[in-house]
């Protein structure tokens, strides 16, 4: 019980660190020194001290959205195995986690429309577009995962894949992982889907939706998206490559689990930094190509499972 709670708290506490690490890695690759990895914490603290401006056109939707977003992402984090396979899994499985994060999307997109700003509308429209077309790839890669692991329970998948060893590593798992990774990039507004560093009116998606927020509201929204990124990366690490994760709560196993987790998350953050430094943002209407690719990958993952099973 304590281990489960502790791992969730670690995840929630290190979320800004993960974002800071990506920024720092990107800066290094681009030949800049960049701010410290702790900068996101400082930004959040600064924002918490600021007063905020609410548009007079906005309604209670704008007021509750930051709290809804953080509550959704914290609940999702509670479901997730981090260094140990046990979770507060009583609440639900992988599908629930994906749908919980949809709460964030739904409310953010509504709040974006709330103030009647054109930027907000644009962001909301694009966000719903992106999330619509990435959803089939997302669900099919989960389907492939469920086929491979024989369950959609989060702890169950980790345990199954980690304890079975390398024989589960087949085309099915790898293809599904690739599709899922593309879906993660889309869900978290990363390159090449959206540029998290831009505030250029015509290209921003996620930032456009948060444009009307300031002060504490903005801090909460920023924190929610940082936590969402780490939740998705943890999901990726512990579903598709759970090796090293602690299958029992004894301290040695937990220490191994922690090290393995840090290595895996580090690798994924590095992958994101490499992608963001080497790729340009795609034009909005080129995105369906990318997502169709992800969709085909996940479909192949499912097909590969059956082909292997028959053989």
């Amino acid at each position: 019980m304590i281990v489960e709670l502790l791992q969730t708290l670690i995840l929630l506490a290190t979320a800004p660190l993960a974002t800071g690490t990506v920024r720092s890695l990107k800066a290094r690759m681009q030949g800049r020194t960049g701010p410290s990895v702790l900068q996101p914490y400082r930004d959040l603290v600064k924002l918490f001290h600021k007063s905020s401006v609410m548009s007079k056109d906005s309604s209670w939707i704008s007021t509750i959205t930051p709290y809804m977003c953080v509550a959704a992402v914290v609940t999702a984090a509670l479901l997730l195995p981090v260094v140990y396979v046990g979770t507060f899994g009583l609440m639900g499985d992988l599908l629930l986690l994906i749908y919980l994060l949809a709460i964030m999307k739904f409310f953010t997109a509504l709040a974006a429309l709330d103030a009647g700003s054109t930027f907000g509308g644009m962001g909301s429209s694009r966000e719903m577009f992106i999330s619509s077309i990435v959803e089939p790839a997302m669900l099919l890669s989960i389907f492939a995962m469920a086929l491979v692991a024989g369950t959609t329970a989060l702890g169950g998948i980790s345990l199954q894949v980690a304890s079975t060893g390398l024989e589960l590593v087949g085309p099915s798992l790898l293809l599904a992982a690739a599709a899922f990774f593309i879906a993660i990039l889309a869900e978290n507004a990363r390159m090449p889907v959206d540029n998290p560093a831009t505030h250029l009116e015509l290209t921003m998606v996620h930032e456009a939706m948060m444009l009307e927020y300031s002060g504490k509201g903005l801090a909460l929204m920023e924190y929610a998206s940082m936590a969402k990124l780490l939740v998705f990366l943890t999901l990726m690490a512990n579903m598709f490559f759970p090796w090293g994760i602690a299958t029992s709560a004894d301290p040695a196993a937990l220490a191994v689990g922690l090290v393995a987790y840090l290595v895996k998350i580090g690798a994924l953050l590095l992958a994101i930094a490499v992608i963001e430094s080497s790729m340009a943002k795609m034009r909005l209407f080129r995105l369906p190509n990318l997502f169709t690719m992800a969709f085909i990958l996940s479909l192949l993952a499912v097909v590969a499972y059956y082909v292997q099973g028959v053989a």
């Binding site: 918490f48 001290h49 600021k50 007063s51 905020s52 401006v53 609410m54 548009s55 009647g116 444009l211």
Partner: peptide
Amino acid sequence: LGGPQRVVSGETW
């Protein structure tokens, strides 16, 4: 966190 917050009502950007 960060003490009491002042909320100002303003125009949309």
